[in-house]
Every structure is written in C-alpha cells, then in structure tokens.
Amino acid sequence: MTTRDIVYIALFAAFTAALAVFPPLVLPVIGVPITAQSMGAMIAGSVLGAKRGGAALALFVALVAAGLPLLPGGRGGMAVIAGPGGGFILSWILAAYVTGLICERLWSNLNWLKAFAASVTGGIVVLYVFGVAWISMVTGLSYFEAAASSLGFIPGDLIKAGIAATVAVTVRKSYPLIEAPRRA
C-alpha cells in the first residue's frame, strides 16, 4: 500500500463522514433517519475498489466506535454500534468491499447499469443480509421479522445506489483509480 492509497482511504473515510451533513433524501420513512451517508460505502467501493474502499469504511467505523459524532444527528460511539442499527454500520465495510470487487471485475467497460448493479449487490444485498442478521441477534426477533422491519428502507437505498452509480461513472471518466484486473 503506497502513501497515496493511505491518503485516499482516509479521504473517503472523511467523505463518508461528510455525507452525514449532506441534504437528506426526502422519503416517507419512520424511525431511523434516511441520509445520504450509506452511499459512502457504495461510492468508496466503486471509486477506490475493494481493498481501499473496504479499508476506508473500516476506518470510518473505527472513528465512530471511538466516539466521534460522525453519524447523522451527531451520533457516534459504542452505544450506536451495539444497538439494532449497528449491524448495518459494521456491514458498510463488507458492502464497500463487495461493491469494489464487482466494479474491479467490470472496470474495463463499466457503465451506469453495471455500477448500479455493483452498488445494489454490495450496498443493499450484502448489507441487508448481515444488517438484518444483527437486528435479529440483538433484538431476538426472527430473521424474517427483522427483515420485515427493514424492508421500508430499500426504496431509499435503491435511489442511493442509482446516485452512487452516476457518481462512480462520472468520477471514473476524470479520475480512474481502479486498474482493470490483470488476470481477467
């Protein structure tokens, strides 16, 4: 890992933190606030690739765990991670990694649809599989009950995946940082 990689990782950890204060998406949802922040994992993965994207989100999660108020509404600390939503926050690491992995594979002719598919797979499918498991573990609800409680967020997340894909494809044109896999 070069110095430049470390800088990019730190920049995207900070970018994810900055997303908490971006204008929120307007969606009729109760309970947990819907903000742009969960886009951080999708964007970090699809701009930096699997390893650096995953590392960026791991860094972000470490800062949140350390008690910095980087989540929407100035939340942070172990209490948030230990709560029901904590699984989603922890899974951002894996979400960024998987999104990045797919984007790396499709890099040579990445278009909006492929970038969208990558963000949906990493940032929604993978994220929910683990996030819901965490809810079920922490709350004692069955997996299906826990899943039902989270389904309402999926439309918002699909919109975010769409935005993340546009961002990824646009940034790729001016600043391609993922190299096409050597053995493809």
Partner: peptide, 18 residues
Amino acid sequence: SLALSLALRFIPMIAAVG
C-alpha cells in the same frame, strides 16, 4: 495510525470543500 490521524484532519477540510 497515519490513516486515523489523516481522517481526523480531513473531516473538517472536506466539510469546508463541501
């Protein structure tokens, strides 16, 4: 350790650029 410090340094900087 460098990455942790850098992230702390960048958060206000990115917020300003934002």
